[in-house]
């Protein structure tokens, strides 16, 4: 015992160094998105407050661009409205079945107050939180496509893991051929990502659109993710290596929509009970 104490006293600096490094490196390697805590993130009250203040000052510089984006979105929605009205008048009889479908997703608009695109694990901070009805695992999209998933929420702010993070995968499909795969980002470039798990006997072509599959209980189906820009065949594992260009522009991200899937709990419950039985 005395010897042990002597050793500790003698090497206390090295021991302290090892302990502190182990704590830090453990945090780096085993960062768990599911257990992420808003207090230990940029979505905590102090950080959120300062980011929001800074954001309101800097927002003036991007006003013109933001207006342009919102105007375009308005235009698209107006066009869509016309189309759906025509469709509705044609399919008046079938309206009963589509009722639940439109009520399944509700949208909350939020402002991006902090965003990073150059790290290996990128996160986005939003100016809305628990008080505004945002919860963990809500999807985050903007008018162009998928942005990310909410991983931690404080009272007035929320932390979103962006697609530009090598720790998440998003269930996706090729719109033209309905082939399912997953989107994963492991690059240095904020404009591109990879589409994985597409077997190489399927026909894919450059320019195909990648959309969300709707399997995951987080994202609504058929939301744009990107378009195929490059296809490589990998002989060793029978899967394509596909590069996609992301549709959402992460460099100029001002407003996003947080999506609540009201049937999420039901789907997860069902999936879990099936998993338990086997």
């Amino acid at each position: 015992m005395k010897a042990l104490i002597n050793v500790i006293i003698r090497f206390h600096l090295v021991l302290l160094f090892i302990v502190l490094e182990l704590i830090s490196i453990r945090m780096v390697i085993f960062e768990d998105l599911e257990k992420k805590n808003a207090v230990f993130s940029s979505a905590n009250a102090i950080s959120g407050f300062f980011h929001k203040k800074l954001n309101t000052w800097f927002a003036y510089f991007s006003l013109a661009e933001e207006n342009e984006v919102l105007r375009n979105e308005n235009l698209e929605l107006r066009n869509l409205l016309n189309k759906t009205q025509i469709q509705k008048s044609i399919e008046k009889i079938n309206t009963d079945t589509s009722q639940t479908d439109s009520l399944q997703y509700t949208y909350i608009s939020a402002r991006v107050i902090n965003n990073s695109i150059y790290k290996k694990q990128n996160y986005i901070t939003l100016n809305k939180g628990l008080a505004d009805g945002i919860k963990k695992e809500y999807a985050v999209i903007n008018q162009k496509g998928i942005v990310g998933v909410v991983v931690a929420v404080s009272k007035h702010y929320s932390l979103v893991v962006s697609i530009l993070n090598n720790r998440i995968r998003i269930s996706a499909k090729i719109k033209q051929s309905n082939q399912f795969g997953s989107v994963h980002w492991n690059k240095n470039d904020y404009q591109f990502a990879n589409l994985m798990e597409i077997p190489n006997h399927f026909k894919v072509s450059i320019g195909d659109t990648i959309v969300s599959s709707g399997f995951s209980a987080i994202f609504p189906p058929d939301i744009n993710i990107g378009t195929i820009t490059q296809i490589n065949t990998n002989q060793s594992n029978n899967f394509y290596e596909i590069n996609i260009k992301l549709t959402a522009d992460f460099k100029s991200l001002y407003y996003v929509y947080v999506v609540d899937n009201s049937l999420r709990k039901e789907q997860l419950f069902l999936e879990n009970t099936i998993n338990d039985e086997h």
Partner: peptide, 20 residues
């Protein structure tokens, strides 16, 4: 290092480098 990590969502990275 840890305080910087919290605010910039890089848990552990700055702490590890600073301790070294």
């Amino acid at each position: 290092g840890f305080s910087i990590d919290i605010f910039s969502d890089t848990l552990g990275l700055n702490a590890a480098a600073s301790v070294l």
